[in-house]
Design a protein around this nucleic acid. Structure first.
Length: 463
RNA sequence: GGAGAGAUGUCCGAGUGGUCGAAGGAGCACGCCUGGAAAGCGUGUAUAGGGGUAACUUUAUCGAGGGUUCGAAUCCCUCUCUCUCCGCCA
């Protein structure tokens, strides 16, 4: 998840999480969940161990009150007990009628009796369903449990640096902003992007377009040939179920572009790729599954007015190479470390200085249990900026999307853990290269590993 | 856009009002057989929610929602999706 997305999410969440009674909890979107698809959090786990959830919610800095949720759950169970008894009686009676051996009168009496049972059931069933719906909606605002290793903090400022690589280059001239460089080199054309679409769209030209293609190819080769990922090219328009599975819907609909046919443009390949195995039961021996996908991403950037208006950092459309894993629950945190290493490797080979941040409880995404951001050095701004985000979503998305595996020993299907991370955001990588590899004359040297992918050229010459 | 067919368990596939959570097969697990394996034979094998320390018990689920009925996978209505043929088209 990108910084921009987190920002938008947090603003939205803040208003959403104002304390209020469950009765007037307004949810803008009716979930298309069926009875055996469960809610966003494990209601049983909440029942058994509410303290863990309360702790998480507090640490994340939101004020959702879990009390009403627990009360609803208790009420629901109470109702089920009575209703199930009624249904059991009805079923038994119906079977007696069917089996025969009753006199006409007995039979008719039983039918009449059972009809009243049926009426009672019909009267109570909607009450239960209403209760369950409210329970589900209430569960919807409860975020994933954060892992114990996540630093506690209020916001971005309290994220913890856990690693740093490379030395920011010393310039013997004033480094330029990438947008100024790129305009001068004729490789990024913001004005024409606006003409063709609107602001936050850019026309990429010449060696700029070539470099994006080269970067994508380089990253894909690294991840497929060396890191064991399988390349996939998913649909870029997906349905509401898919968006719900990974958590973009229903809460973050305003961040998405929706088409007139009801499909959504993907804001990240995480959405379609994680949903590849939605409603599936995988074999334990197939885990872990690694996918890598290079796609455009589309984000409305609602709520980010005025931020990064200049340049190629924050666009409505950008390219990203995304890593997705389906992991055995016991391995997911180890897999997160590996995934972070895979993303870091891209920066290392491009020789771009970066640091790794462990996001704190106040900054971590809604569905993530633990998350690292990779931040690349940008000389003009003189600071590190997010270029990748690697998250372990544990079973949070798997529960929504019903992604399970059958244990080898024959036990019940269990939820897998899902992970995702950028490996990397291609547009921002281009930005980082432009700024870090710029020369005094305005030309840009091409990182060594990229030269073969650029047809052998070693620089973008100044015009 | 026009015409038709379909949606059942991990998968394939039968089932047109009751004894159907659902035949049969595949897969998987265990056992027998074998020097070991394959084949063969036998046994077992859905998910979710309640209640119960447990044994166990109960409810729901045959694409989704509604209806008829004492009783629905099965009958009726609505919707969604998939497939085939025709038309259009990158």
């Amino acid at each position: 998840m990108s910084l921009l997305q987190v920002g938008a999410k947090l603003t939205y969440l803040k208003s959403f999480w104002e304390p209020r009674g469950l009765a007037d909890l307004v949810v803008p979107f009716r979930l298309g969940l069926t009875a055996n698809e469960s809610a966003m959090i494990d209601i049983k786990a909440l029942r058994d161990n509410p303290e863990a959830f309360i702790k998480t919610v507090q640490a994340r800095g939101n004020k959702v009150d879990l009390g009403p949720l627990l009360a609803l759950d208790a009420k629901r169970r109470e109702l089920i007990v009575g209703l199930d008894q009624l249904k059991a009686q009805r079923n038994e009676n119906s079977q007696k009628v069917g089996k025969g051996g009753l006199s006409e009168q007995e039979k008719q009496a039983l039918i009449d009796l059972t009809r009243t049972l049926g009426d009672q059931i019909k009267a109570q069933d909607p009450i239960l369903r209403d209760l369950e719906e409210r329970l589900e909606q209430a569960a919807l605002v409860v975020p994933n449990l954060v892992d114990a290793s996540v630093p506690v903090g209020q916001g971005e400022e309290e994220n913890k640096e856990v690693a740093r690589w490379g030395e920011p280059r010393k310039f013997d001239f004033e480094p330029k902003h990438h947008a100024d460089l790129a305009e001068a080199l004729g490789i990024l054309d913001a004005a024409r992007g606006v003409k063709l679409a609107q602001s936050r769209f850019t026309l990429v030209k010449g060696l700029g377009a070539r470099m994006e293609r080269a970067l994508a190819a380089f990253m894909l080769d690294l991840h497929t040939l060396e890191n064991g990922y399988t390349e996939v090219a998913p649909p870029l328009l997906v349905n509401a179920e898919t968006m719900t599975g990974t958590g973009q819907l229903p809460k973050f609909e305003e961040d998405l572009f929706k088409t007139t046919s009801g499909l959504y443009l993907i804001p990240t390949a995480e959405a379609p790729v994680t949903n590849i195995h939605r409603d599936e039961v995988l074999k334990e021996e197939d885990l872990p599954i690694y996918y890598v996908s290079h796609t455009p991403c589309f984000r409305s950037e609602a709520g980010s007015y005025g931020k990064d208006t200049k340049g190629y950092i924050r666009q409505h459309q950008f390219n990203k190479v995304e890593l997705v894993k389906f992991s055995h629950p016991d391995q997911s945190f180890a897999e997160l470390e590996k995934m972070r290493g895979n993303a870091e490797e891209v920066l290392k080979r491009l020789e771009l200085p970066y640091r790794v941040m462990a996001l704190c409880t106040g900054d971590i995404g809604f569905s993530a249990s633990k998350c690292y951001d990779l931040e690349v050095w940008l000389p003009f701004e003189g600071r590190y900026r997010e270029i990748s985000s690697c998250s372990n979503c544990t079973d949070f998305q798997a529960r929504r999307a019903q992604i399970r595996f059958k244990p080898k020993d024959g036990g019940k299907p269990q939820l897998v853990h899902t992970l995702n991370g950028s490996g990397l955001a291609v547009g921002r990588t281009l930005v980082a290269i432009l700024e870090n590899y710029q020369q005094k004359d305005g030309s840009v040297t091409i990182p060594k590993v990229l030269v073969p992918y650029m047809g052998g050229i070693t620089q973008i010459p100044a015009l």
